[in-house]
Amino acid sequence: MDLDLNEYYCSSNLARLYRERNGDGDLKRAHSASVLASAACDRTFRRGVTDEWLRPTWLALAFDDGDADLAEDLAKKVAKEDVTRWKIKSVPCDLRVSTRLVADDARRARLAAVADCLARQSGIEGGGE
């Protein structure tokens, strides 16, 4: 992430790791890492780069930052596209961990609903919390 802010995948799980560790300053570090990596995903998407990991990484980042609005928006896009293109089957565990780490009950419930919906669409059992 320090070498190239456009390389979103390298730091894609950093926010989740900070939140899980939950040491002094980790929540602030987690938010910064998530915002930077999500912005890199957005830039990559707008440039039209075809990367099979872009969408699932962006989705996981939305969960990591507790951004239910973005997660719901991305889930709507999943519904319009081939789910296998999103590699959804690679991220359910990450989505569950991230959902569990969201402190706000309402956002956590919205994220759990998105994870459950994606799990159903992709045939994964137990997609939510």
Rank of each mutant, 00 (worst) to 15 (best):
R120N: 11
D94E: 13
T84E: 14
D26N: 11
G48C: 09
R29I: 07
D42E: 15
V49M: 10
A60H: 00
A15R: 05
F63M: 03
A37S: 11
Y18F: 15
R96I: 03
V49D: 10
L70S: 07
R21T: 13
L5Y: 09
A40M: 12
S38G: 14
R19W: 07
V114H: 00
K76N: 13
R55C: 01
G25L: 14
G23Y: 08
T57I: 11
A113W: 02
A75S: 07
Q121Y: 03
E72Y: 01
A40I: 09
G48N: 10
T44R: 08
K77Y: 04
T57A: 05
D67H: 01
S34P: 02
A112R: 06
H31L: 10
D42V: 08
R108L: 07
A103C: 01
D82E: 15
V83M: 05
S32M: 12
D64E: 15
G23C: 09
E129G: 06
V78C: 02
E7S: 11
K76Q: 12
R85E: 13
Y18C: 04
V35Q: 12
D73G: 06
T57D: 06
L14D: 04
R21I: 10
K89F: 11
R47T: 04
L118R: 01
R120W: 05
T57C: 06
L95D: 01
A62D: 04
R19E: 10
E7Y: 11
A15W: 03
M1F: 11
G128H: 09
V49N: 02
K89L: 13
G48L: 09
V114P: 00
R43S: 03
E125M: 14
D4V: 02
T57V: 12
R29V: 03
A30N: 06
A103P: 08
A71Y: 01
R46P: 00
I88T: 09
R43K: 14
D42A: 08
A33L: 07
R100E: 14
S34N: 15
V91S: 00
A113S: 13
E20R: 15
R107C: 02
S32P: 00
S12G: 06
D104T: 02
K87E: 14
C10F: 11
K76W: 05
A40L: 12
E81L: 04
R120Y: 03
